[in-house]
Design a protein around this nucleic acid. Structure first.
Length: 285
DNA sequence: TATATTTGACCAAA
DNA sequence: TTTGGTCAAATATA
């Protein structure tokens, strides 16, 4: 049985146990608050399980689509713009919920103002681009229509297998405790998708959805730290309004730094997700 | 000191 | 010529 499946089962079992305790609670106590907390936990656990399954589906989609495009011919490369060809050779498409943080390490290498868009687009490459010749690239841009939504475009296939041992090693009991500590948000996430029928498709992910993913990732201990990430890294997915030049920043840097410090036990590879999430929390507050 | 981010410049496609 | 994507030097951070 795959690790992901075990984790999902573990989540569901916890949900069942909590439901039992809730029943007992309702029989023997009159504490409405404790019952509410349990209901909240149960809903979160099931949401976790759903999202974990979503991740698995995403992986299948990636593999399927990558195979479809793999046989394209390569062109002669100029010294620059190496990645331009990758767009026609390998396009990873994330469909569904689990897409923005796939457990890979991303390093920002550029940011551009996009014509007709009020928000800049950030360019990220796999951290292992040079060490493992991993060609994966992704672009992240805040939606004009809804600033709380990020449009994420994945280009290229990971050859680093960086997430092969990722996340999924610890028990989920920790996740529950983290969730309780973090608040009482309950209910299903609302997600918008915009799958375009082009070679590169985009997925729009709500920050609320990311918050739930953050909860999930906190359930894991990340043991596959690459040596090049030992020191950790702070990357803000987006920076805006720092300068009016072709590239600009967003004033999120300090928030991100704080966020990463507060989440020190988590693999730095996930800091990009954390950055997005923290921005989202700012939006909510 | 090593690693990550910022950002102006460069390049190619449209 | 405009625009999007990338490079790489400068800068920031741990």
């Amino acid at each position: 049985m795959a690790m992901e499946e075990k984790l999902v089962i573990n989540e569901l079992e916890q949900g069942r146990e909590l439901a039992k305790r809730l029943i007992s609670n309702l029989k023997h106590t009159s504490s409405v608050e404790s019952s509410k907390i349990m209901i909240s936990e149960i809903l979160r656990i099931y949401q976790n399980a759903i999202l974990m399954l979503s991740f698995k589906e995403d992986d299948k989609n990636i593999l399927k689509r990558s195979r479809e495009i793999e046989d394209k011919d390569s062109k002669t490369l100029s010294k620059k713009r190496k990645l331009s060809d990758k767009k026609t050779e390998e396009v990873k498409v994330f469909v569904g919920t689990g897409s923005i943080d796939d457990g890979y390490c991303w390093r920002k290498y550029g940011q551009k103002e996009i014509h007709g868009s009020s928000n800049p687009r950030g360019y990220f490459r796999c951290t292992h681009r040079f060490t493992k010749k991993c060609p994966a690239v992704k672009q992240v841009q805040r939606s004009d229509e809804d600033p709380s939504i990020f449009e994420v475009k994945y280009v290229g296939t990971h050859t680093c297998n960086n997430n092969s041992t990722s996340p999924k090693t610890t028990t989920t009991s920790f996740s529950v405790s983290m969730m309780v500590e973090e608040g009482n948000r309950v209910g299903l996430t609302e997600q918008t998708e915009d799958i375009k029928p082009t070679k590169t498709e985009e997925v729009m992910i709500s920050l609320e959805d990311l918050e739930y993913k953050k909860d999930i990732f906190k359930t894991y201990s990340f043991s596959n730290h690459e040596t090049e990430n030992v020191g950790g890294w702070k990357s803000n997915i987006f920076q805006e309004n720092l300068s009016p030049a072709t590239t600009s920043g967003s004033g999120m840097t300090s928030e991100i730094a704080t966020a990463v410090e507060d989440w020190g036990t988590v693999d730095s590879c996930f800091s990009s997700l954390d950055n997005i999430i923290d921005l989202g929390q700012d939006l909510w507050s």
